[in-house]
């Protein structure tokens, strides 16, 4: 197991290095000039040039790359062109609302997704199964932002039960904080729960039709025991991989959902920075997000290895 973990960790390193190279090179092909975008619209050419020098944009690309990597090794993502502050600080601050949303959404996803999926999977072709299958098909098809705007219209605009958007920190005002969190978390949570429920249902239904489950049932074991001891244990193995991938989906989804509900967060940082040509911020945010995804996938793989020892031996 230890060797497996070490091997997977080592494998992740070149991907990270390549990803950082990709992120860096991508943004140096951007047409136009970040200094121009930042300078006052009426600034003269010399003023723009002075700003360019201050930001280090006049140096050769390879030098910029080397400097970027060197500072990355020191945990320094550079300073934002837009705000003049360290990118790491901006990410840290904006990650908070995003993580808050993602965590609540993910908890919704796991509880709703697995419970509905199992309920449908153990009783294939029941009314439950049809209901769950149909709604998952619909929820999977509807883009999260469409669902979000519909919820916004219904629950916030029409009934006025919840705020239209914005964010209040939970520790500042718990009631208002939760109110602003409900709609975005429901939006993200339900759409992802549908994916998980569907997958779980398939996995569970396949396991229930396996010989050993039939045997267990034939032995007259209580249904609850059959489900918990035999079905869940075996069917949740593939579910772990998917729920790992869903962390990435939820983080990406929050970029769009933050927009729907006017919430601050990493999504706003990315979109604003692209518009302002804030290169260090785009680079830093992309790199951090990619690293998170690599890490989450790694954890999912390792978990998979824990529950299913065959994995470690293969490949």
């Amino acid at each position: 197991m230890g060797r497996y973990v070490v091997r997977r960790l080592i494998e992740a390193v070149p991907v990270l290095v390549l990803a950082s190279l990709l992120v860096f090179s991508l943004l140096h092909f951007i047409p136009g000039d970040p200094a121009s975008a930042l300078a006052d619209p009426e600034a003269t050419q010399e003023e723009v040039q002075a700003l360019r020098e201050r930001l280090g944009l006049d140096r050769p690309v390879l030098v910029q790359l080397k400097n970027w990597w060197l500072s990355l090794l020191q945990g320094d993502l550079g300073d934002s062109f837009r705000t003049g502050r360290p990118v790491s600080e901006m990410i840290r601050i904006n990650a908070l609302p995003t993580l808050e949303l993602a965590t609540v959404s993910y908890m919704l996803t796991l509880t709703l997704g697995i419970s509905f999926g199992v309920m449908a999977g153990v009783k294939v072709r029941s009314a439950w199964d049809w209901g769950v299958s149909l709604s998952t098909v619909v929820f999977i098809a509807i883009p999260n932002f469409v669902f979000g705007v519909v919820l916004l219209w219904l629950l916030a605009f029409t009934f006025g039960w919840l705020p239209i958007g914005g964010r209040v920190a939970i520790w500042d005002d718990p009631v208002a904080g939760i109110k602003t969190l409900i709609l975005p978390a429901l939006t993200l949570g339900l759409t992802q729960a549908a994916v998980l429920a569907r997958y779980t249902r398939t996995a569970v239904s396949q396991v229930t039709q396996q010989q050993y489950v039939m045997t267990a049932r034939a032995k007259g074991l209580a249904e609850r025991v059959v489900v918990v001891r035999h079905v869940l244990k075996n069917s949740l193995i593939p579910t772990i991989t998917l729920s790992g991938l869903q962390v990435a989906s939820i983080l990406t989804g929050s970029v769009v959902i933050e927009r729907v509900f006017s919430r601050p967060g990493l999504g706003r940082v990315v979109v604003d920075s692209v518009q302002a040509r804030d290169i260090p911020t785009i680079q830093g945010t992309l790199l951090v997000l990619v690293s998170v995804f690599i890490l989450v996938n790694l954890i999912a793989d390792l978990l998979y290895g824990v529950v299913d020892p065959r994995i470690r031996l293969e490949s």
Partner: peptide, 17 residues
């Protein structure tokens, strides 16, 4: 490496280019 990038965010970055 490419698959490690969140798709929509990669697309946003590329659109900037």
């Amino acid at each position: 490496t490419m698959m490690a990038f969140p798709g929509l965010i990669l697309a946003i970055g590329l659109l900037a280019v």
